[in-house]
Design a protein around this nucleic acid. Structure first.
Lengths: 241, 241
DNA sequence: GAAGTGCTTTTTGCATACGAAAAGCTGTAT
DNA sequence: ATACAGCTTTTCGTATGCAAAAAGCACTTC
């Protein structure tokens, strides 16, 4: 019963305005562990279904079990691992059904995001989008899948940011990362079409055409969803590009 | 009575069909702590902005700091508390802006949810909806705000479930709980209109009219959002500095 | 040879302990 | 009187320890 509102108002210092500047926060270890494990999962180093033993991960990462536990818990709430009650963590195995549901939700969120972006985009925003678009098309030429996926994620993230809805952005961030995880292994073929659609999207946003932006993004997302379905049937050892 | 086959794939035992019956899972303590803390937050027992000291909570709940920490982390990722790096947990203080953004996202998700529900609803589903609708209107008569909010949440949750998209349902669950938190204190006036809209929604779903269901839900959500805005300016809290 | 049972090993879940960083306070000097 | 500096207190972050539950294994029995 010592502290009720531990008001964080600056006493009366002169530079209190710049207080937003967080300088080198200690960077909690659990965050580093979270990032490391997520990377390992997305990398497929940790395969879907694999049992993650806290002690092993701890030793591998050179930390104690505690931060590992905390990271695993967060990974669970973000949908990357399943935490069975007295059994530990297992890398989440995405089912076809779940992937489709995720793609559907993504479609809805992204469509709204595109509308908001068209509504709010400034000249600087458009400039950024064009830059990202260019980066994507360059990656398209090099045919580097990983870079392409990254460029794609960047563009979508930028659109979300431009929409000026943080809640939406965060949500899209979560969903997109998982979609990326499911989708990356089969992402090859649609790249060119995809970036053409992106170009259309950027144009619509630049013109402030809300309806059109929404429409384009919706079609774009649904195309991705369709591609996922078409691809998922065979064990496509077809490594042709 | 001790020989319950713990294995979840019965070899060819006779009662393998009933194996879905999960009997009394150990119920992790962190989950109980999570629920307890969430209740305290929604109750306003723990006020927005309040500093949550792990040791205090642990003692209050009669557990050690460990499960409390884990619960707090999850509360953070769900948006209920802010976890400042070396400073601990603070009950999240919703800003007007954030509340509006959340309501906007909710609107989008719920609209899609309603469309899905109209697409998938069976006779049994419709029956359930009508039952919940009835419960809501009864609560309306008693003018019990808490019950009303609960009935409202139940109905929306049911619609989400009927849509058969688990990813969407979970997301709506998270968003709705937070909206409810923000909105409850000012939820008085709109009840009757709200339940009329619900009735319309149920009808549209029952008829399988996808477009209409989406439209009704969209209007419904936007009305709620509007009400929030109209209500929020009782006293000019000049917090801009 | 196959199925069931009891034991051992492994791994989680929770508790406790210790070090470090941040906030608050007090005393002193200007 | 005010402002700064150093110290103390509080609280978090991480590590370690211990008990309980679950899984795996070998043994016994039919």
């Amino acid at each position: 019963m010592t502290s009720l509102p531990s008001g964080r108002r600056a006493p009366r210092g002169s530079l209190s305005a710049a207080a937003t500047r967080r300088v080198e926060r200690p960077a909690p270890l659990r965050q580093a562990v979270y990032d490391a494990l997520l990377e390992l999962i997305v990398n497929r180093t940790l395969a879907p279904g694999q049992h993650l033993v806290e002690a092993e991960l701890a030793e591998y990462l050179g930390v104690s079990r505690q931060p590992v536990r905390e990271a695993l818990q967060r990974l669970q709430t973000d949908g990357w691992v399943d935490l069975r009650p007295a059994q530990g963590a297992f890398v989440h195995t995405p089912t076809e059904e779940e992937a489709d549901q995720l793609l559907a939700v993504r479609s809805v969120l992204e469509t709204y995001s595109a509308k908001l972006a068209a509504e709010h985009a400034t000249a600087a925003d458009v400039k950024l989008l064009r830059k990202l678009q260019k980066a994507g098309e360059e990656a398209l030429v090099t045919a580097n899948v990983e870079r392409l996926v990254k460029a794609n994620a960047d563009l979508h993230a930028a659109v979300a940011t431009i929409g000026r809805n943080k809640v939406l952005s965060e949500m899209i961030g979560l969903v997109d990362r998982r979609v990326r995880w499911y989708y990356t292994p089969i992402a090859r073929p649609r790249s060119r079409d995809s970036w053409n659609e992106h170009a259309e999207l950027v144009t619509a946003i630049a013109e402030g055409d809300v309806e059109r932006a929404g429409e384009v993004m919706h079609n774009h997302a649904e195309q991705t969803r369709q591609t996922y379905h078409d691809r998922k049937t065979p064990e496509s050892t077809t490594e042709s590009d």
